[in-house]
Amino acid sequence: MKSVLKIRMSAHDAHYGGGLVDGARMLQLFGDVATELLIMNDGDEGLFKAYDMVEFMAPVFAGDYIEVEGSITEQGNTSRKMVFEARKVIVPRTDINDSACDVLETPILVCRASGTCVVPKDKQRK
């Protein structure tokens, strides 16, 4: 089972000079994917317990389209281990004009992570 989400980073997401997006935004998107996975798997949103690993691989800027994917890799009694990847799939081309963009032939891995979520036994519906 996997979940995929695609979202455009806006000027609101930019936290630093030059339109750079804070890495924490990728973790927020991973949390959204984790929630969907838990709903599909258990019928409940569950809780994110911890990240085991987070790697920021490339910068993300306002205007970039990010595709986020996650999947459950292990399932315990209440725990769900997950892996996540965020890839840049479309980039603005302001060097051409204000509204030009390119779809990347090869998406750029911008962040990957793994973590554990928990769904209490009394909240599992599946």
Rank of each mutant, 00 (worst) to 15 (best):
G63M: 02
A113K: 02
D102G: 01
D122W: 09
G46I: 13
M53T: 12
A62M: 07
G46W: 11
K126S: 07
V91F: 04
I96E: 15
L109H: 00
C101Y: 14
T116L: 14
G31L: 09
S79Q: 12
R112A: 00
K81I: 04
H12R: 14
E45M: 06
P107R: 10
G31V: 04
K49L: 15
L37T: 09
D32L: 13
D44P: 00
E45V: 11
A86L: 08
F30P: 09
D64S: 11
C111L: 09
K123V: 02
F61S: 03
S99W: 12
L5R: 11
R125N: 05
G76W: 13
K123W: 07
V68L: 05
I66M: 12
H12M: 13
T78L: 06
G18T: 15
C117M: 08
F84V: 13
G23I: 07
D122V: 10
A113D: 05
Q124M: 11
A62L: 10
Q75S: 05
I90D: 02
T35Q: 12
L37D: 02
Y16M: 11
V4A: 12
V110R: 04
L109D: 04
R93K: 11
R87F: 08
M26H: 05
T106D: 12
M26S: 06
F48V: 05
A50M: 10
F56W: 10
K121C: 02
D13W: 04
F84E: 03
S71F: 03
N77A: 10
S114I: 12
K49D: 10
S114W: 02
R8G: 01
A113Y: 08
G63T: 05
E36R: 14
L5K: 11
A86V: 10
V89M: 11
K81F: 02
R8S: 02
K88I: 15
T73W: 05
H15F: 12
D122C: 03
L37A: 03
D52H: 14
M1A: 09
V118K: 01
Q124H: 03
P92G: 15
F30Y: 11
E67W: 01
M40V: 05
R87C: 04
E74G: 00
L27E: 03
S10K: 06
Q124G: 01
I72Q: 08
A62I: 00
S3M: 04
L109P: 00
Q28M: 13
V54R: 03
V4K: 04
A34Q: 03
G70V: 09
D98K: 13
F56H: 01
L29H: 04
V83Y: 00
A14G: 08
A34F: 02
C111V: 13
G115I: 08
G46M: 05
N77H: 09
A14Q: 14
K49Q: 14
A86Q: 03
G46Y: 04
F30A: 08
I66S: 05
T73S: 02
E74C: 00
G46Q: 06
C117F: 10
A62R: 06
P120V: 14
L104D: 02
A14R: 02
E105H: 10
S10L: 09
P107E: 14
V91Q: 14
N77R: 15
T78I: 04
Q124A: 06
D42K: 01
L104G: 01
K49I: 15
D13R: 05
